[in-house]
Simulated scan of single mutants.
Amino acid sequence: MNINAVELGPRKGRGAVTNKVGRFERQDRVLTDDGWDIHDPRRDEPPPKLRTVLGIDTAKTVIARNKSPDVPFDQSINPYRGCEHGCVYCFARPTHAYYGLSSGLDFETRLFHKPDAAQVLRRELSNPKYVPKPIALGTNTDPYQPIEKAEETTRQVLQVLAEFNHPFTIVTKGALVTRDLDIIGPMAEKGMAAVWLSVTTLDRKLANVMEPRASTPTKRLDAVRALSKAGVPTGILMAPIIPAINDWEIERVLEASKEAGADRAGYVLLRLPHEIKDLFTEWLEAHFPDRATRVLSLVKQTRGGKLYDSTWGKRQRGEGPVADLIAKRFGVGVRKLRLDGARPDLDLSRFTVPGRAEQLSLL
């Protein structure tokens, strides 16, 4: 009897091609065909659609502390674990392995959230030992992925931050961020909020492959326009830049972002830690078989001959001639369009714990 691995190929609306087990699992799983259903008419049918399942995150805190020298924040909140956007290159995918889940399709279909995030955050901010520092949302998974429309976990978190006059920043690919302008706008007016939109391509077809469930490039630029018009400091991130896939669009993305009202821009070179190396390779071979080998070669040229180098100071930008050329092009574009504005200094002086003054006066 012949038993062969079954290759299902890309799923419509999903990014990863497979659902291989995480790196901590002792056993692997492979979908196989033993040949017994050779005459089954269902063999030629497309695989069933994968539905998104939302579970409960039971963590007792919502504020995460960061010690990485590569990122400009000390504290962050990620309302969701996993991300429905389906970006195959997402550097957060390997975190699903800690839950015994795959960094592939599980990451974008089996999500977790904290229904009581607002209450937990209120308790953390009310702690007398808490020292306020800007809180970044969207540093790991997107706070405005599709399920946020119904769950409103991110909105509830923003409401608490506004209640405490606590400064925050947001990074997202979701145009849904404009829904919360009634919170973000007033906080920005007080110098307590800033937003980054991730714009990786202007090509709708490429976006459908790279980020299947994220807002379209047009809607993201519309969001930049709306935020900027409302007085919110708004930047764009071209993250990631992938050699031979979207690097040719650097200047176009910067020009479109400037026209939409962005006041600053940044980028991150493609990162492929842990399982993402294999997921990205599978994705390339499925969607860009004509250039997969070339893309991987260029990526290695930015990482000292490897697919990834996690060294501090290098992992965001890479090194070597290819990485240097990308950095130069981006830098020239940013200076030419005056998208080199400094990150806004968010005001920490107004932080207050609601009711604390009244409570003290009763003592």
Rank of each mutant, 00 (worst) to 15 (best):
A193S: 01
K300H: 02
V21P: 03
F330N: 10
R252I: 11
A193G: 08
V160Y: 03
S68G: 07
E25Q: 15
T32K: 07
I38A: 15
V88T: 12
L31K: 05
N127R: 03
G13D: 07
V53N: 06
R252H: 15
Y144N: 13
V295E: 02
K149F: 10
F112M: 12
F107N: 15
D142I: 15
R350T: 05
N140M: 14
Q75H: 04
A5T: 12
I170H: 02
G15H: 10
P47C: 00
Y98E: 10
V209R: 11
E163K: 08
G138I: 07
G320L: 08
W312F: 11
P47A: 13
R220N: 04
A118M: 04
P132M: 09
I183Q: 02
Y144C: 14
I56E: 13
I276E: 04
Y98T: 15
K300F: 01
T311V: 05
E108V: 13
V6W: 09
T139A: 06
D33F: 05
R81Y: 06
R271T: 01
A230W: 01
D247G: 03
V53D: 00
V332I: 14
N19S: 08
A136Y: 01
P128L: 03
D28W: 10
N4M: 01
L125P: 14
T109K: 10
K60M: 09
V62Y: 02
S215D: 03
P128R: 04
V157D: 00
L105F: 06
I241Q: 05
P41C: 10
S76W: 01
A188W: 00
W196M: 14
I184G: 06
R23A: 08
P69M: 01
L363R: 08
R338N: 06
Q75I: 00
